[in-house]
């Protein structure tokens, strides 16, 4: 298995889906799913599955991590809620 640690700014297309709120099932909240992203070298990658998304706090800043796959490699995308910027921070093949 080969793993690359990256810090690459990317453009991401996301889809939002309404799901019931955790605290009150009468209300809906939006869950974000990255569906496609473009790397600095122009390569466009389609996300075939979102494995796990979870928030991480760094002090008061909040980031959302999205572990996704294109069906061949695994990628980690990070969305910074302060700067509203997306970063690609990891790529790993599983061979």
């Amino acid at each position: 298995m080969h793993e690359e640690i990256l810090n690459e700014s990317i453009d991401v297309i996301v889809r939002y889906r309404s799901i019931p709120s955790k605290n009150d099932k009468l209300f809906l909240r939006q869950r974000c799913y990255p569906v496609r992203f473009r790397r600095q070298n122009g390569q466009e990658i389609s996300v075939s599955e979102l494995g796990l998304s979870y928030p991480v706090r760094e002090g008061r800043s909040l980031k959302y991590i999205f572990d996704v796959t294109d069906g061949h490699d695994d990628y980690r995308l990070e969305f910074n809620t302060d700067s509203l910027a997306w970063l690609l921070t990891r790529r790993a093949d599983n061979d």
Partner: peptide, 13 residues
């Protein structure tokens, strides 16, 4: 299990 959930290509391996 969490890693396999997070990285679908690891499932079953």
């Amino acid at each position: 299990t969490i890693e396999q959930q997070s990285r679908p290509r690891l499932r079953g391996r």
